[in-house]
Structure formats: structure tokens, C-alpha cells
């Protein structure tokens, strides 16, 4: 039949709304780019500065290693304490926020608390705590605890909301007290995921604990910021390399923990 030769195949047409959305985004993108005030002269000057900057970074200067080590240690302490505190607080809060276990009037306030904690960057929270409790590690610990509550709380709540209620029902039917229902019906279903989330949060706190010092909340960040302001770039390089080293070691360790718990 001749009709076979006539048949044509056309790629499925893109919906006009999708096209319009892409066009609008492209216009916006160009507009936003223009806000950056990037002129060729500035770009070239930047390349020149950048080159000088990079040459000043190397070789890294580890002479003040005692200062470096002290800062790293304080960052590590902040991360550990904030993670543990955040974990302890977010367990009950996420249980309260789980819509499958609690009534709405309980979940709503718990969720609001977590949203507010999650909305602010840890460094912003750190500024407020520095103003409230003064410079030092305490402000960093409190700031990262709040941030941990926001993220862990959200992840925990989602994990609890995904559990099978049938398994919980069966434990309840044995006449077990409430805490035993949690221990046998809920915890086994979420435990390994919780371990995974908690180690993720420890990694994340370790990263942020090296930054809160920029606003005076303790840890290596303060040393880093000071070195930057003194144009002490070879020390800056040493600090950054050490931070990277600590974060990588931290990730290796938390991965090992996850393996132990099969998370």
C-alpha cells in the first residue's frame, strides 16, 4: 500500500506551557547574570589576582601546627556534642511529629519547630547564639544542635511515617505497654535508617563546625578567618587541607559504623 510510505513520525511536541516556562527561565537567567556586574576588565583582573592568590597558597605552611590542632580539636568536639544533643532531642520530637502515631494537635507544633530550625543556615544560628551566650564553643554547640534537630527531626519523622502499622498493631494486640510497643514494633523498623541519618548528620556537623568559627562560635573557622584577613595565605592553605583531611577521615569512620549496623 502506498499509505505506508506516506506515514511520518514526529517527535512528540513539547507542550507550550513547558516552552513558555523555559523561555521565562532563560530571560530571568540573563537578567540575574547582569546583576553580577561581571565586565571583561573585572574578569581579567580577577584572573590575575586569582593566579597570584593560588601561588601564595602554596606551599602550605604547617609551622603553627599547635594552633591548627587546637582549632581542629575544638571543631571535632563541637561536632560530636552537637550531634549527640541533636540526636537526643530529635528522637522524641520526631516521634511527636509522626502523623501516623500522633494526633494533629501534637504533630503540628513539633513540625513547626523543625521547619524553623531547618530554615536557617547553622552559621546564621551561630551568630544569634554568639550574641546570646558569648564567643566560644558553647555558641557553636548550641547552633549545630538546633540545626541537627531540624534535619534529623525531618528525616526521622519521614522514616517513622513510612513504617508498617500492621507490625505495630500486632505488638499492641499482645497487650504490651506503650514503651514496649515502641521498642518492638517501631524501633526495629527504623533503627538502621536512623543510624544512617545520624552518621550523615555527624558528617554534616563536622563540616559546619569548621565554619561556625567565622562568626566567633568556636573551632578552626575562627583561625581560618583570621588568617584570611591577615593575608596569611600559606597558613590558610594548611588549614583548608587539614579540614579536608578531617572530613574525609570522618566519612570513612561513619561509613564503617554504618556497615556494623547494616544501615
Amino acid at each position: 500500500m502506498a499509505a505506508i510510505a506516506e506515514r511520518r513520525w514526529v517527535v512528540a511536541p513539547v507542550h507550550w506551557a513547558t516552552r513558555a516556562a523555559w523561555f521565562a527561565f532563560a530571560v530571568y537567567f540573563v537578567y540575574a547574570l547582569s546583576h553580577l556586574e561581571l565586565t571583561p576588565a573585572r574578569f581579567l583582573a580577577g584572573l590575575d589576582y586569582g593566579y597570584k592568590f593560588l601561588t601564595k597558597l602554596f606551599p602550605p605552611d604547617f609551622q603553627r601546627w599547635e594552633l591548627l590542632l587546637k582549632g581542629l580539636k575544638e571543631s571535632l568536639e563541637i561536632a560530636i556534642l552537637a550531634s549527640v544533643l541533636g540526636l537526643i532531642i530529635s528522637l522524641p520530637v520526631s516521634l511527636l511529629a509522626a502523623r501516623n502515631l500522633m494526633p494533629t494537635w501534637v504533630t503540628w507544633p513539633a513540625r513547626m519547630v523543625m521547619v524553623v530550625c531547618r530554615s536557617f543556615h547553622p552559621v546564621i544560628i551561630a551568630i544569634l547564639f554568639v550574641k546570646a551566650v558569648g564567643f566560644g564553643a558553647l555558641a557553636g554547640i548550641l547552633a549545630l544542635t538546633v540545626a541537627s534537630l531540624g534535619f534529623l527531626g525531618k528525616l526521622f519523622t519521614e522514616a517513622i511515617e513510612e513504617i508498617s502499622l500492621k507490625q505495630v498493631e500486632a505488638v499492641r494486640a499482645t497487650g504490651a505497654p506503650f514503651m514496649s510497643v515502641i521498642a518492638f514494633g517501631v524501633v526495629p523498623q527504623v533503627f538502621s535508617r536512623f543510624i544512617g541519618f545520624a552518621s550523615y548528620e555527624l558528617d554534616s556537623n563536622l563540616r559546619n563546625s569548621t565554619m561556625v568559627g567565622i562568626v566567633g562560635a568556636g573551632g578552626i573557622g575562627g583561625t581560618l578567618f583570621a588568617a584570611f584577613q591577615r593575608f596569611d595565605y600559606d597558613f590558610v592553605c594548611a588549614i583548608i587541607l587539614s579540614i579536608i583531611g578531617m572530613i574525609v577521615v570522618g566519612e570513612v569512620l561513619t561509613n564503617a559504623v554504618k556497615k556494623v549496623f547494616r544501615a
Partner: peptide, 8 residues
């Protein structure tokens, strides 16, 4: 559906 706690 048995309702065992599967991870135990």
C-alpha cells in the same frame, strides 16, 4: 498478613 516485625 502475619504482621511480624520484619526486621526482628
Amino acid at each position: 498478613e502475619y504482621n511480624l516485625v520484619e526486621r526482628l
